[in-house]
Computed example of a mutant assay.
Amino acid sequence: MKILISGQYGEPRASDIFWPMQKKLNECFDRNIQEGHLKTISKFAIGFRVSGKLCNFKSQGAERLRYLKKTNALTVDLVFSESQWSSTDLDEIKKNIVIGVLNCLDLMIERSEKLGELIQKESLLSDIEKAISEFMR
């Protein structure tokens, strides 16, 4: 099983701030998420959508949770408004990213339970906790 973060950025400055954190999160998840938590779902994919001067996604938080049966994936968008990052320090942005990612993962775990896919919830939560702890260092 993989947890992957992708991104769509509304301006270059947003990319400069979020891309390094997106990359580090992916590395932390790669190192800490083990196999065997789910039956057939192979991926939880979170897409950062960061509003900026060129593109405003006009919302905030987790939205559009979808189960893609053909690719055995759960996907969700995590939207950040421009006010959440443009005049905020990096530590605060990092905390907001973690809060948003954990919220998305909670929604995905809940959906995987409803789909009868979740096998090892406690072990998955433990792996996620390890990855987030590594990210926050």
Rank of each mutant, 00 (worst) to 15 (best):
V101P: 01
E35T: 09
S51G: 12
I3L: 07
Q22P: 00
L115P: 02
A45P: 00
I46C: 03
N96I: 03
N56T: 09
R13T: 13
L118K: 03
D91V: 05
G47N: 14
S87K: 11
F29Q: 00
E134K: 15
N56C: 12
R66P: 00
R137N: 09
S112C: 13
P20S: 06
A62H: 03
N103L: 05
L124S: 11
Q84F: 07
F29K: 00
E11R: 12
S6I: 04
I33S: 08
N26Q: 02
D16S: 15
E117D: 10
R111P: 00
A62T: 14
K23E: 13
E129V: 09
Q34E: 15
Q8E: 15
F135W: 05
S15N: 03
S86R: 12
L102G: 13
S112H: 10
Y67G: 04
Q84H: 08
E35W: 06
N72V: 01
K2P: 00
V79M: 12
L105S: 00
I99C: 04
Q120V: 01
D127M: 05
R31H: 13
M108T: 01
S133D: 11
S86Q: 08
L54C: 05
F80Q: 01
P20T: 06
S87D: 10
S51C: 15
N72L: 08
M21K: 14
N96P: 03
S51R: 04
Q120L: 13
R64S: 10
I17P: 06
M136A: 04
S112D: 07
L78I: 10
